[in-house]
Amino acid sequence: MTENRIKTIDFDEFQSVADRFIERSSHEFGEMPASSFFELLFEKMAERVTETIELEGEVVDNQLVLRLPVDLETAVQVKNNEILIGDRRIIVKLKNGPIYPTAH
């Protein structure tokens, strides 16, 4: 690891900035100009998403089970509550209940 070299604002100076920020927020909405908003919006919309995949999910015996559409050809793999994309594995857990991956 290398140390991040950024020079942060002085602690006390930042507290003044924070106080003024909060004070301003008590009487204004802090919106952004239309030209900047739409320029950044179009920029974001134009960023390519190469593939969108809709998974179906259901809870079976307290297990989250995700499924790919049957006829979909994709490099993404799905096993119960796990989604494998290349060398990355995403495990989706239900809140308020343990979900354990099961091997098939």
Partner: peptide, 18 residues
Amino acid sequence: WQSRGELPNDFYITRLYE
């Protein structure tokens, strides 16, 4: 909040500074 790519919803109400 908005992720990249196409907007998911049909319309958006927003507030701007001008």
